[in-house]
């Protein structure tokens, strides 16, 4: 039972992380590889505020969202100079800068030692020390997050985002401020990543920079690609599928040293297969005047 709760919490956190990437990558065609950097900032914000200052969830959630979304500023700056593949490389470099900061700014983050002992939150006398209680919190937050994103996915904002992804000049000639639309999409998706990071820090109780590596980014990207970029329900389904997929392997009689690499291999094969069969659909051709 405890194991199933653990999986459900992970699914909850990843739905927030993947769906928000789906907003800017899926709808907007913006290959933002710094998404996990916002996730990291959210996690560290919560970790530091709750261990150093003993602040409650009422402060850590908003702070994680705000600090996470501040990362949208440099990303938007990168996107104004670089597009498409170059944008991906730019954001990748940027996310490495963030990880390097987490590792080397030891006075703040304790470097690779990480931050242990993050207390579980407590609100209005209800504590979330037990995983079953924490699951309720996660489900509430994740559901609220998905509802707002579901609205956003049908809104005119989403149409503007899709329009600029396909043909920027055509979107501009329909009076869409494409630069602002992109900026807002980075802002929203980074804010969501910050929230996911906050939940993650609370749940795991201990964070270190290794949780926010490129591998993590690739995993989130795999979810979006498998779920079909731009599809709300597809990505939601893919989150369940990919988070739960490697779990049955645990029950096989395999030593843990093989199990880890096997999971990676499984994801790699799935990602390769999906990209191979959809290679013309994942990145629709962008047109220019």
């Amino acid at each position: 039972m405890e194991y199933l709760i653990h999986l459900a919490i992970l699914v909850g956190i990843y739905t927030i992380l993947a769906q928000s990437l789906n907003l800017c990558f899926g709808l907007g065609g913006l290959f933002n590889l710094a998404h996990v950097a916002s996730y990291a900032i959210g996690a560290y914000t919560t970790a530091l505020l709750s261990t150093e200052f003993g602040l409650s969830l009422w402060y850590t959630f908003p702070a994680s969202i705000v600090l996470g979304s501040i990362l949208a500023l440099p990303i938007a700056a990168i996107s104004s100079k670089l597009t498409q593949d170059y944008f991906a490389i730019g954001t990748l470099a940027f996310s490495f800068v963030i990880v390097a900061l987490l590792i080397n700014w030891k006075s703040l983050t304790r470097g690779v030692l990480g931050i242990p002992g993050i207390p579980r939150p407590e609100i209005l006398g209800v504590n979330f020390y037990e995983n079953s209680n924490f699951l309720i919190l996660t489900v509430l937050v994740a559901t609220a997050a998905q509802l707002i994103l579901a609205l956003l996915f049908q809104s005119r904002f989403a149409r503007g985002l899709k329009a600029q992804a396909e043909y920027e000049e055509a979107a501009l000639s329909l009076a869409r401020n494409t630069r602002r639309i992109r900026g807002i999409s980075f802002f929203i998706s980074a804010g969501y990543a910050g929230l996911a990071g906050s939940l993650f820090a609370y749940y795991i109780n201990y964070i270190d920079p290794s949780s926010f590596s490129l591998t993590e980014m690739v995993f989130v990207l795999t979810i979006v690609v498998v779920g079909k970029p731009g599809s709300f329900w597809g990505v939601l389904g893919a989150t369940f599928f990919l988070v739960l997929l490697p779990e049955p392997l645990r029950f096989l009689d395999i030593s843990p040293s093989i199990l880890g690499p096997m999971r990676q291999l499984l994801y790699a094969v799935i990602l390769y297969g999906v990209v191979f069969f959809n290679r013309y659909k994942i990145f629709p051709l962008q047109r220019v005047i």
Binding site: K162, A163, Y167, E169, A170, S173, A175, P284
Partner: peptide
């Protein structure tokens, strides 16, 4: 003036290579 503001004033454009959004 930026293009989207011109459009707001009422400037419309039809592109040679089809300006429709094919994925929509």
């Amino acid at each position: 003036m930026p293009p989207f503001q011109r459009a707001e004033l009422g400037l419309g454009r039809v592109f040679q290579n089809f300006g429709i959004f094919r994925e929509m």
